[in-house]
Amino acid sequence: MGKLHRKTLETGVEGLGDSYFTESLALSTPPDDPDPLDSNLLLRELQWLLQDATGDVGRSQNPDLVPLRADLGDLYGLWRERVLERRPFQYVVGCEHWRDLVLWVGEGVLIPRPETEVVVDLVREVVIGRSGRGDGEEVWADLGTGSGAIAVGMGGVVGERGRVVATDLSEVAVKVARFNVERYALKDKVQIRQGSWFEPLEDVKGKLTGLVSNPPYIPSRNLPGLQAEVGRYEPKLALDGGESGMDHLIHLCEGSVSYLKPGGFFAFETNGDEQSEFLVDFMVSKLENSFRDVKAVADFAGIKRFVTGFRS
């Protein structure tokens, strides 16, 4: 196993001196790349890579040396994939830090995005608002759960009486989501089921207290132009929203009519302003009288990223 100077760990590359890691930074941005890697970000990623590969610092004999859990040469192999092949950093290290969670991710499952962290906050607000009302069990659903990010996050906020059922069509996603649920000891609270959207939810039809989803919403024609890390590595099943990008969103809005109980809450993530405005209008006018308080909610960049509301 390798050893590393503590200083390297703290600064990322300084201290690796003339080694190949620094060289890779220079390689990272060919002058003609239309979508270049940002070297500041790369530096930070390198630091994180070393962090994740660090062994038990407390047991090192020499206080200046930090034991590594992997061989430096192997780490360099991973780093090359990151830099030259644009493999997403999260797939390289096998995890993503999301909210206060560290979720296992890998090829075949979408890396959860920071924007989506807000979905859990939206749910939490509703749970707090409802507290004291009713006394039965409350079932929440996360459709297209991917790594299980939203489902695990919700498991922590739905309260004593709440439980979560999450679905995904992808076998890999179901495996990863189950793993993440178990890692956070939420097995009794969060159940992962394989199947298409509402299909695995017959037993809770009309009984859902809340329903959230971040379904694929990118218009098919935009898929070829995606950032290399996304387009080359992340599953198309997790991104492709059909011609307008809204095939799945519309299906979910329609399904909510029959799966939510009266007063039940929904929140969907969308591609942004245009889709959110369309959906608000769609739910108010086309699915008339089924929903109330339907509105678009902005993300931190000011883009209308979510549509929320309640079943009448």
Binding site: W48, L49, Q51, D52, A53, R69, A70, D74, L75, L78, E81, Y91, V92, V93, G94, C95, H97, V102, W104, G106, E107, G108, V109, L169, S170, E171, V172, A173, K175, V176, F179, R183, P235, K236, L237, A238
Partner: peptide, 25 residues
């Protein structure tokens, strides 16, 4: 269908032959 790749291929996690790091940073 998504590219079905067995969980075995998750890189660093496998390289380290353990679960990915959950230590806070």
């Amino acid at each position: 269908m998504a590219r079905v790749i067995s969980l075995q291929c998750f890189s660093l996690a496998r390289l380290l032959q353990s679960r990915p790091s959950v230590r806070p940073t």
